[in-house]
Design a protein around this nucleic acid. Sequence first.
DNA 1: GTCTATAAACAGATAGAC
DNA 2: GTCTATCTGTTTATAGAC
Lengths: 203, 203
Amino acid sequence: MGSIDSKTEEIIFRAARKVFTRKGFDGARMQEIADEAGINKALLHYYFRNKDKLFDRVFRDVVKSTLPQLIGIMNSDMPLFDKIRTFTSTYIDILSGNPEFAGFVFHELSRNPYRLLESLKESGPNLRVLENQIKEAALSGKIEYIPVTHLVVNMMSLIALPFIAQPVIMGMFSMNPEDFDAFIRERKELVPQTIIHSIIKRP
Amino acid sequence: MGSIDSKTEEIIFRAARKVFTRKGFDGARMQEIADEAGINKALLHYYFRNKDKLFDRVFRDVVKSTLPQLIGIMNSDMPLFDKIRTFTSTYIDILSGNPEFAGFVFHELSRNPYRLLESLKESGPNLRVLENQIKEAALSGKIEYIPVTHLVVNMMSLIALPFIAQPVIMGMFSMNPEDFDAFIRERKELVPQTIIHSIIKRP
DNA sequence: GTCTATAAACAGATAGAC
DNA sequence: GTCTATCTGTTTATAGAC
């Protein structure tokens, strides 16, 4: 269940992912997906029954292709600062390759939060690990204590929002696409620095 | 041009803003707006001609009701750290009152970036002021230099993303709506702290 | 100005030939 | 499996009565 068997199915699925992640469920058209796949509209229904089911598969695929990597890093026994750097670098790489993913996931989740429960909790992050690292580092005087919630949200924010706000940023700072790419690359260094500076204990 | 004259027009407009900001252009239905306004569908067209024009008015209204305040703070002659604190506090207050605004604006702008040029550049921010403050503070050894772009994006990110990711955050950390409100209130202190700690010069 | 009724266009889904 | 043709329901938009 949930696997891709035939060649055509694969082509359709990729087309659907492209259109859905760009336009969202409401903005996507079955016709556009068919065009993108170079096949007929009827085939979409032959392979995926209806728009909802096709979307569901796409949404799960997007989540599955990104979350586990990030959760893996979060749950690892890497030292705290390394974890922050690796998480940032990996997350930015993922979103650089798929700039629409962040906006897509957040938008669809506020449209229909139920899906979250399934797709997120299937591979839910274990915050205990990170929480203990923070407490330990705080007790040893290495960092200022910060609740896990805020640390995680701060990282997510600094990493994901620039992609969601890409047109705003490009407009506001008169950037072209190359400028924006460079800007994102700079953030691979800057974001971990920002996070670490904000919690590290001063002498 | 662009002003609201009659009572009914005002009621319709508020209903439209509510529905559009929640569902987005593609997800919004003229019927739902009519229902929300307690009037008939035909009246929407009588007052606003079509869906596109109604949406345009709403989008501009949302931008106009938020951006100028933030730009005003950015362009003021407030000291740098005060500016960071005031900007954060004001922005969070705006979004607390209208949690859908951030997701709405960013989503619609990536759907149709043209609108940005008009709505954003009408009251474009003057980054020179902030840029000079950063340079001055860096030269006087008060802070580590940071490009304006990154400083502004960092603030925007830490403030806006939590609202966009609200369902994710509530799911991930098992929060109820009250928990989330408290979480956001905490950020009014935490975000400026994070930003300032990340740039302030260590002894 | 506000309504009901209806037109016109669109989008998702199915039937049936090949 | 893949196509064309078509149906059904939805959604925007207009006509016209009051």
